[in-house]
Design a protein around this nucleic acid. Structure first.
Lengths: 66, 66
DNA sequence: GTAGAATGTAATATATAAATTGCATATGCA
DNA sequence: TGCATATGCAATTTATATATTACATTCTAC
């Protein structure tokens, strides 16, 4: 599950831990999602997108082709 | 987790069972997602979107406001 | 009004996302 | 050098998405 979370988190200049706290999960969960090793729930994807001021498509749609 | 899956499935004129088979899950899972009673995985959301020729945002982004 | 298809729903089982804890590594800064 | 912050990673536990099975309900067409 490749995605653009790390790229956009860094653009937002926040740490994994800050994003985790804002989205209500742990730092480890954010780390694994960024690594593409998790298949996160839709709700979590939406939370992450909102915190980064992006949409689902921005972060998770056809990332391979970008 | 309100969404536009049912609306777009009906527009595509396919049954829950057909969509389930195409996305590799059971009819019950599709039914519960349409009812908003599940928090589906990102992979499943992507599969559903592709089968319905929609994007994640079309089906799952800020559905309340549409 | 009956038959079949589509959908709702409920109980139990299984797979896996996510939490928790802990330690290792890397990096920047005093 | 030494300390603090950020991140990686691994083992175990917990919560929940999804499967399976089964039966009920709704709806359409004959």
């Amino acid at each position: 599950m490749k995605n653009n979370v790390r790229l956009n988190r860094l653009k937002a200049s926040i740490t994994q831990e800050q994003l985790a706290k804002k989205t209500g999960v742990t730092r480890q969960t954010i780390g694994l999602i960024e690594k593409g090793q998790y298949n996160p729930s839709l709700q979590l994807c939406v939370s992450i997108a909102k915190e980064l001021n992006k949409t689902l498509d921005d972060l998770f749609w056809e990332v391979e082709n970008e």
